[in-house]
Structures are given as C-alpha cells and as structure tokens.
Design a protein around this nucleic acid. Sequence first.
DNA 1: CGTTCAACCTGGGCGC
DNA 2: TGCGCCCAGGTTGAAC
Length: 296
Amino acid sequence: MPELPEVETMRRGIAGMVGSRITAACFPRETRRPIAMHPTAGVMRRRLVGRTISAVHRFGKRVAIELGATDERSAAWLIIEPRMTGLLLLVPPPTSEHVRMELAYDRGGQGGAVAHGRLVFWDRRGLGTIRLVDRRGLSAACGPDRLGPDGLVVSGADLAHRAGGSRRAVKVALLDQRLVAGIGNIYAAEILFRAGIDPRAACRRLTAEAWERIAGEARRVLAEAVRLEGSTIGDETYRTADNRSGRFQRRHRVYGRARQPCRTCRGAVERIVQAQRSTFFCPHCQWQPGRLRRTL
DNA sequence: CGTTCAACCTGGGCGC
DNA sequence: TGCGCCCAGGTTGAAC
C-alpha cells in the first residue's frame, strides 16, 4: 500500500515523538507468523527501552526512527517498512489482532507535565518488516546502493543517466527503487499519465526531454500527494497516524479506472499487466516516442 | 540483461 | 449463504 506520499505522511504524523523516551516495547506473536524482524524481539526490546528518539526519517518507502547516542550506546535506527498493509498509528488500531509492534513513550516535561503515548505498527497482511540497525546497517539498507534519488527531488538527468540505455519498459523501471526511491504502482501510473508517456515504452527510446517531463511530473505529483496526505482507496487500508483518510485519490486520473473514460480525452482507460502488476493508462493520451500518435 | 514465477500473508469483492 | 476465484498500495530470490 504505502508509497512515498503515504510513508512521508506517516513520518510527519509521528515526528512529534522526537525528544520522547521509549518506556516499553512489545512485539505480539499471536498471529500465525510473527513479523519479519531483526534482531529478535527480546534483543530489540532491550536495545529500545530507555532510548530517546532524536529524529524520524523517511528513506524511500521506509520510516527510520533514530535513537540518539548516549555515553553507553551508539546511535541506532529502527527501520519500519510497511510494504502492502502496514500502518503507523498513534491512536488505537482497528483491532488488537495484527499489531506487530507497540512502543510506549513519554516525555518528561517541565513542572511535572508528562506527555506520553503509544505508537503501534499495525499490519493486516504481515508483509511489513522491522529492523533495528547501526550506522552501517542503515547505509546497507537505505544507502545509495539500495535506493536511488528520492522521488520528491529526482531530476530528468538522474533518470536518463541511470535508465537511459535500458530495454525495460519505463513503468517497470519507475518501480525499481534503485533507480528512484518511493514510487509505487499508483504513482507510477499517475506520473506517466501526466507526462503523456506510454508505460510500455522502452527506456532507451525516451528522449532527454521525455525524462525531464517524467521527473518533473514525479516531483509535482508526489509533492501534491504528500500535501493531500496520500491516497486512501476502497477498503481504506491506508490511514494517517491519527486515523484519517488521505485525499489524493480524488486526483487519480488512471489508477484503478480500467474501462472508465479518460478525464482528458473520454477514451477508455486500459489495464494491462507488467511485471505481474496492474498498469493503468490511456492509450490515446500516452504515447511512445517514434510511434505515430493515435488521433480520435 | 531482462522477464517470469513463486513466496510471504489477510481480506474484500464478485460470479455462481 | 457459501465457495472458489481474482485482486490488492511491496519486495525478494530463483529459474530461464
């Protein structure tokens, strides 16, 4: 589920935890398979409790909660990867089932005021992951070998340089986190529609100008989706940290709209499958370089 | 190099 | 109502 805008919304939603101290951590195992985590729950708990949160980052589609160094312990990062259905919630989850992690935190205020609360990682399908890493682990998991430039700041030159010679279809390339970080199935479709590029076009056929258009639309679409707090679709599996819906779904032009009229040309939006994922696009408004543009 | 498939899971929607 | 099937915002590793 969550792509860059949803994960960035999660990050902002929990950014108020900075300065708080973790007082308890639990990792319920009541589900069939415990969440994929490293290290084990006991070690994780021991390393988390008592630590102060010094920052909350986002790397692509992952949130990283930074635990500041102390005299005894060096800095560490709790990397949470929501995958399809993971949510970070500061309010009680819909059910206690599927809670994969719960952190209690408090902040000793001046004059006896204590702010405290709970952060829950709630993940229905359980495909998400949790890792606690040191500085080296962070760079192995989220460094430039793993993640390309962030989608909010990617340039046409970045894309052209890294993918320009590839025979891959441009939609498949945009899902590759090493090329550009944060784009998933929804936003790849929306970006290519706005750029007017056919998702099946081979990267090596795209001109520098086409890459500039794709990068520009990526920055614009992702920034707008962040402003609208992401996309909540259908069964509402995505919610903000305080349990509200995103609003970018109202701006979707092609995603999930197979056989419905294109909002620009009124032709039917098509659904095809690329790399085992659905791709939605308008064959009239999106074309491949070198091919005659279809006319109505 | 690039594609395809399976796997990891739960749950909603649809046709019959 | 129930059953079987398809679908879903992601990632990884193996096989070809």
